[in-house]
Structure formats: structure tokens, C-alpha cells
Design a protein around this nucleic acid. Structure first.
Lengths: 393, 393
DNA sequence: ATGATTTGTTGTTGTTGAAAACATATCAGG
DNA sequence: CCTGATATGTTTTCAACAACAACAAATCAT
């Protein structure tokens, strides 16, 4: 907002607030809505009716928990309203159908034997979406496509500035996929979307200031939520904590600097030490925690030390309430939580560190699909009334 | 906001938007207000009339710049609406009277021969404020007191958690000064307020994402504005860029870590090299830029290198549009701008660095008073109608 | 069964900003 | 200096929205 408001946009704002509450809580009773919004019962009734007629909400049976007074019907996200989530990665393109409220309805993974080029990724995504639309119950209404890309994405137009591990440079992914599917496409950085998903549905629910840090096969990505708002920066590139200096005696990084968090804290090093060539996150974590090799624990602590430095900087800079760790960073932490806790209890400024908690992600493998779909729902929530007409099928 | 809105709070919001525009621009014509808010002419007329009756705005002669059509009267901040700004420092307590629109009306500096204790600072401030109120034209209406403290301040209650160079620990400054003056008192970190002042009236006007970094006699403080909003974090401690790791081979810092920006980039080192014991910022800058001693330029570059590392981290994390440097950091930059520019053109991620500009502060010695007064005006702007009754005298 | 309590429903009302019509003040051009 | 064009202030009217009040409905407690 920020600008002046006509009388009519007041209703749109109120509609938006209600839809957001319903979305984030996956359903609230009408009486809860009156309490949380401060709006009048009759107003809530009218607004909910409008959401229902827009196909965005449904009213159902009152909550079974019996309380005094007339039971209040539950208002839930309309399950037929869905977004399509796409996540191109090094080894596969994953496509999902996600309902309002963040429930993953469908999920298909298309493996590839080499990192896909942009053209290949768009083709796979477009074909996968076409298949999904053909197979999907026609009652589902698709409201758009959200894409999580492991790289820097310009917010305005969805241009992928750099996806180092896919080898993409300045690729207009949003434009290409929109042309191929005929649907509106929004693209963002994967870690950024991970942080949003965790902040809405995961470990960071109701937390307004958090730092999310994910360790993937190829590097470390981050996302920041500050004051309840995702922090994007001027162009949307914010959150790159992987390129924080953690040691002056570090390895050169592809970014041009050296001693970055990403060059020192690496999944590969851990895999090599426990003698696994190609393990998933769970296997790696088991191997790390059951290993008796002192070299393993030394390396774990070495990497945690560097992670601690990066987090120290970030905590001093952002004063978050919560740190959410994903991928192998969560495993690192799980193997020796005390080590990182001790670092964070001593290194950052005393005032800032006392309110910080560290958790691991809670959304598991749905994380990026939920986050990508959020891109679709975001515009829906911002203006429920005049969001473009739903695509049937 | 964030919650539902009654019909009446719509008007309050519109009032707030208009007052903020008038404040930030120090006056706009009514026709400009209609364009910038999108509100109807008749609505603007009514809202401006209400602001005038609240003593927050005045209507004056149309802008002399002659254009076709009926001239539109200028709406300016009511000069009689003022806030009191207080800034306790190591060597003085400064008190100012600042008008809406950020104009410094009065300014008194009370030097002290030792860093003041909290009690002393409160006493000096209260006495100074009493004197000001006695001498001030009774038409001025004081709307509250804002304080800029060189330390970590908890936003909720104005508790000064730590002001290392004043030697304060967990001091309830806001509470004490409120009791001593009978006025509402809001306290915040000085660099945080510097960033807000520069972002509203200074070098960063109309910039929505910026990092402000100030080098003072005692250390380095920072403030962040992201998405147009000041970034405070959970408790308000955000922005401490002075404790970013810039070298693994660094000196121990009072914060518990070592190799912090603040331990490596020091005003004292520069003063010692140019042979000045106690120089103000201007003298230091002259000395640095006229010195022919190679040791001076070596040290300048060494410090700029470290500053570059901290800014690299911050740019990767926050993707700002602008870096604003104040204090001796501005001097460092002015002496050898090319050195820092080159670092910032190579170290951060390519996408993030291409949109960054570096500037020095523009508000000079009024910076902190304007920023502190902003704390007072903030609540006034948030709800112009029901902001507490003005204190006369 | 009866009262207390909470909430949905319906019809009415006050407030708000928009819209339209008119008045006013400038500029441009002869 | 007069006239038309243009932009804006002013006034009146109007539609929309949320609040409110009164009533109905559905549960719990006793």
C-alpha cells in the first residue's frame, strides 16, 4: 500500500486480510476471523461470502470442539484453487500442484541425466504441466505458475541472472515458460522461497524476523524475513549468505572473492569423509552421526565454526528471532548441536544473541513446492477480487 | 496494519499518508497530493483541512512557478509542531528542537568533561529541555522527545542494553527521562536514526534499500532500510555492521569475537598517523587528503580493504541500492574513492554489485537531531488524529 | 427443561471518498 | 486587454462500506 486509499479498496484490503488468515491457518472459524480482524460479524459474513463466490474459500462444519454458544462455521481455503510449482534442479525438474493453504496435491519428478539447459527445463516443465492439466480433475482451477530456481532471480521480470550450478546466465525463464504454457509465471530464488514457506507453514510460523540457510549439493543459499516481510533488496538478490567471508585463509570462490561460507562449508567434504559417493540428506546425516572417525567430527566442527561466523555476522546485522537450517546444514547442526549453540551463545553481541533460537526446517521435501506456489497465492491474496480469471483444467 | 480495517480507520490511514508526504517533502501543493495519493480533489481538501485543524499542517501561497490553470495552494508542515531531540555522547549532551518536516529550529550543546552516567545524562537533558521550554515561543507545540543513543536500544521500552563507550548497561533511559520531563520519550540507536534521517531527507531520499554506515570516535554503527522500512529486527538491535568479521588475523573485540570491522577500521589509527590528537571530522579529512606520507595512504587502503569486506558481505545479504557513509568512513572514502569502488565492483556477486552506489551523508551535524525527532514524528504520522494532546510551551 | 452464552442473520444507519457541476485563477494568443 | 483553454478549488449529491441493533439459532450448564 503506502499510497492513499479509496473507499472501495478498503473492502479489497479487508478481503485480502481475511484470505491471508484463512490461507496461513488453513481454515479459521468465522468467529475467530472477527476476533483476529476486529471487524464486525456481519462484515465478516459478507466478506467470507464474497471469497466463497470467488472460489477462494469454502464454509464447512463448525469445529467439533464444543464450546458455549452457537457454533461458528469453519472457513477453509477452497481446495479447488491451486497453483503449479516448478523447481528445476541439477538432476531433475520437479513439478507440483499445490492448493491454497499450502497443501501439496500432486507431485511429479522428471529426472535428467545432466543439468538441464534453460530450453530443456522449460520444455520439461511445459510438457509436465500439460500432462498434469490433462490428468487433473477439471474442477481444479489453476491460478498460475510459481518457479523456484537455484540462482539469482530478478524480481521484476523473473530473469534468472545467474544459476551457477545449472550454468544459466541471464535467462528469461519466466517469459519462456509463460509463452510455453500460456499461464502467468513468477520466478524467485529457491532459498528465498524456502524461507517464506517455513515462515508461513513451517518452523518459523508467527516469527517475524528470521534467517533461513539451506545447504544443498551445490552451495549455500539463504532467505531473510524481516518484520514479517520477505527481504528482497532492490532487485530481489538479497539473502546470499553463502558468500559471507568466514576466513581470510580460504579457497577462491566462483563469486570472485575467497573464503566464502560456501567454499568452506561443503557437502562434498562430508560425503568424502564418510565414504559416500551420492547419498541423500538422510543417509548423510545417519553416516555423520554414527561415524566414530575423529576426522569426521573434526570436519563437522570445522564447518560448524565457519557456519557460526556467518551466522554471527548475520545475527549482528539483522537481530533475528530464529535461524532455520535446511539441507546438510541441518544435519551438521543435528550431529553436534551444542557446538553451534555455544558459538552463537558467545560470538554475537550479547543483546542480539539472547533472543536467537536455531531450528531445522520442518517442511521436508515439500518445502520448495510450497514456497513456489506461494508466489502464485501472493498475488491472489493481495487482491482476491480482481485476480485474473482462473484457468480451468 | 495487517489486520482488518474499519471504515473509520481508512480516513486515519489517508490522513497519515498525506501527512507523511507533506513531512517528507516539506510541503506539496494540493494538486500534487491528489496526484501522488490518487485521492479525489474534494477528499484532499477535506483531509488537509483536518490536518490544519489538528495543528499539523498549514496552507499557504501557491508555488510561484507559474503553470496553466488555477494555482494550487501549498500544504506545508505546521512550523509550530516540533519534537525535541536529545543525543547523549561521550563528550556532550546535545539537545535540539526540530520542526515537522525535519527543520532544526534550535540546538544546544552541553559539553561534559567525562562520559556522562545515565543519571547525569538524564539530568542534563531534563534541565536543558526545561530551559528550552521556558525560552521557546509559547506557540510551539512540543509533541514528544526522541533520543539517539550510541548503543543497543530495545525498541519496546527504550531500555539501553549496552552503550559501551558511555559505560551504560541495561539503563532504562526512556523511562527516566519521561519521569524527569513528563513528556513521552522514545529512544533508539544513533546509527539507526542516522540511516532514517538520510533516507527521508538526505542522500538516500526515495531510495528504498540502503545501508548506512557511520564511523565515530568510538566505533562503527550501522542502520539498514529495506523496502522503504527501517530494519530493526526482533528487539531493535539490527544494523550492527561494526561486528562483521573482516579478517581472521584480527584484534580481539569487546563483543567477544575478534577481527571485527570495528577493531580494524579505527579513527584513532588515522589520527595517530597524521599526528593529530583530537581533530574533528573535517580536519581529519583534510589531513588525510593532503598527507604525502606513504604510511598514511597504506593505512587508508588497509582500512578501505576491510570496509570493502564488510560491505561485500552486507551487499550480498541485503542487495541494497545505496551505501551511505558517515563520519570518518566518509573521509576514508573521499580520500581514495577509487579503491573502495574497485573493491565493490569486483567482490560482491555480480548481480548485486551492479546496482550499488556509494555516497556520503548529506545532513551533516543535524543528522542525529533530525533522526531522533523522527521518532516523535513517526507516531504523529502513524495516527495524526488521535496522537496525544500537544504540550504547550 | 430453562437460562446463559455465543454467534449467525437481517435491516438500518453513519461515515467516507467519488463524481459531477460549477466557480476561479492562471496562461497563451491575438 | 480580451477570449478561450486548462487546471484546480468548492459545493452538492451519491454509492459503498462497515458498524450497529435487534432478533434468531445453536450450544452448554444446571
Amino acid at each position: 500500500m503506502g499510497r492513499g486509499n479509496s473507499n472501495d479498496s478498503l473492502r479489497r484490503h479487508n478481503l485480502s486480510v481475511i484470505l491471508e488468515l484463512v490461507h496461513r491457518n488453513r481454515g479459521l472459524s468465522r468467529s475467530q476471523l472477527t476476533r483476529q480482524t476486529g471487524l464486525n460479524r456481519s462484515t465478516i459474513a459478507a466478506l467470507v461470502a464474497e471469497l466463497v463466490s470467488l472460489g477462494l474459500a469454502i464454509e464447512g462444519e463448525p469445529d467439533s470442539a464444543s464450546r458455549v454458544g452457537r457454533p461458528s462455521p469453519m472457513v477453509r481455503p477452497d481446495p479447488s484453487t491451486v497453483g503449479i510449482a516448478v523447481n528445476p534442479e541439477i538432476d531433475a525438474v520437479t513439478i507440483g500442484v499445490v492448493g491454497l493453504g499450502g497443501t501439496v496435491v500432486e507431485r511429479v519428478r522428471y529426472p535428467v541425466d545432466h543439468p538441464p539447459t534453460v530450453g530443456e527445463a522449460v520444455d520439461i516443465a511445459a510438457a509436465g504441466i500439460a500432462t498434469l492439466r490433462a490428468d487433473l480433475d477439471p474442477r481444479y482451477r489453476i491460478r498460475g505458475v510459481g518457479v523456484a530456481v537455484p540462482g539469482l532471480v530478478r524480481t521484476g521480470d523473473g530473469l534468472v541472472r545467474l544459476a551457477p550450478h545449472l550454468g544459466w546466465h541471464d535467462e528469461p525463464f519466466a517469459e519462456l515458460l509463460a509463452a510455453a504454457t500460456g499461464m502467468s509465471v513468477v520466478v524467485a530464488n529457491d532459498a528465498h522461497l524456502g524461507s517464506r514457506a517455513e515462515s508461513i507453514f513451517g518452523a518459523a510460523r508467527d516469527i517475524r524476523d528470521l534467517i533461513y540457510l539451506n545447504g544443498g549439493a551445490s552451495g549455500i543459499g539463504g532467505g531473510i524475513v524481516s518484520g514479517g516481510q520477505p527481504l528482497g533488496g532492490t532487485a530481489g538478490y538479497a539473502g546470499e549468505l553463502g558468500h559471507t567471508l568466514v576466513t581470510s585463509a580460504g579457497v577462491a570462490c566462483h563469486c570472485g572473492a575467497s573464503g566464502c561460507l560456501e567454499t568452506e562449508v561443503r557437502r562434498e567434504h562430508l560425503l568424502a569423509l564418510v565414504g559416500l559417493a551420492n547419498a541423500d540428506g538422510h543417509e548423510l546425516e545417519i553416516a555423520l552421526s554414527t561415524s566414530t572417525d575423529p576426522a569426521v567430527s573434526t570436519e563437522v566442527r570445522r564447518q560448524l565454526d565457519f557456519l557460526g561466523v556467518a551466522l554471527r555476522n548475520a545475527i549482528n546485522m539483522l537481530n533475528p528471532r530464529l535461524i532455520v537450517l535446511g539441507g546438510f546444514l541441518a544435519s551438521l547442526y543435528a550431529v553436534d548441536p551444542g557446538h553451534l549453540d555455544a558459538l552463537l551463545a558467545s560470538q554475537p553481541l550479547a543483546a542480539s544473541r539472547e533472543s536467537v533460537t536455531v531450528l531445522r526446517t520442518r517442511l521436508g521435501s515439500d518445502l520448495l513446492l510450497v514456497g513456489a506456489a506461494e508466489l502464485v497465492f501472493e498475488s491472489l491474496i493481495a487482491d482476491p477480487a480482481s485476480a485474473g480469471p482462473p484457468v480451468r483444467r
